[in-house]
Design a protein around this nucleic acid. Sequence first.
DNA 1: TTCGATACTAACCCAAAGGAGAGTGTATTT
DNA 2: AAATACACTCTCCTTTGGGTTAGTATCGAA
Lengths: 141, 141
Amino acid sequence: MDQSVTPPILYEWAGRKSAKPVDPALEALVRDIIGKIADKWTMLILETLEAHGTLRFTELGHKVGDISQKMLTKTLRQMEADGLVTRKVHPVVPPHVDYALTDLGRGLGAAFCSVWTWAETHYDDIEKSRAAFAARQGAGE
Amino acid sequence: MDQSVTPPILYEWAGRKSAKPVDPALEALVRDIIGKIADKWTMLILETLEAHGTLRFTELGHKVGDISQKMLTKTLRQMEADGLVTRKVHPVVPPHVDYALTDLGRGLGAAFCSVWTWAETHYDDIEKSRAAFAARQGAGE
DNA sequence: TTCGATACTAACCCAAAGGAGAGTGTATTT
DNA sequence: AAATACACTCTCCTTTGGGTTAGTATCGAA
């Protein structure tokens, strides 16, 4: 896609979003954050911590489901860096590490909650759409 | 417990859990949906269509930003299959294809709106957290 | 006759995501 | 003495994401 010239203007928001002025620099920033956060594992971990409160590493892994240790560690680190979770190490043997949401993380969890609800409400619509789409493709519309 | 022949197995990581009395099939489904829509390009396209209404392919690409035709096509097809967007082909030359959100898509857009607002509100907190985290790592806490 | 416009698809390639499995450190338990 | 527990880290490997370039079809304009 040709993006050699990107004029910073010509965004006419239908007034439906926040009343903030459309600053392209800010928009790029927000876009970057969305890009980082709109991630499967981040969302799943967020959801799990929101539902169960403070959890230890292994415990969290089991509750999230089919996540590998590698991805759990990596995603947790990113979330810690972004200030979404706290990581509390108890210097004991065997190791004990507690993960919990920060206020920021809880805020995102609350925001994302509506998406989760949407998915629960409309999964059957999506299934139907997929079936219809597959049929359309198969039949050679 | 047979330990004479047992190789050093440390984890059985693939075990399924059931924390909540939720139908596991439904949970897997919702999880799958979240996994599919919690995607950078899907969110960005959704946002763009929500803000601008009906758009043509190239137009949409420009407004979304740095997206390649390949990803635009691919994401759009997935969204069409999931029933989030409609694809209307006008059989003219040169080709003319209109993309617009469905009710389902608009619903998801509305749900995701709060996440977008959260990102706008807290991007500076995230920046600060990242800086603090980097400093913590660099200084060897 | 050649060009340009549009919305793609196909082929190629590289980088990142992500899974599997083994290794680490040490105090307590067997 | 050996196993165990926990929270990792490291290496190896496959899959997916995603960019780039080229090509296609067709009509009207130059």
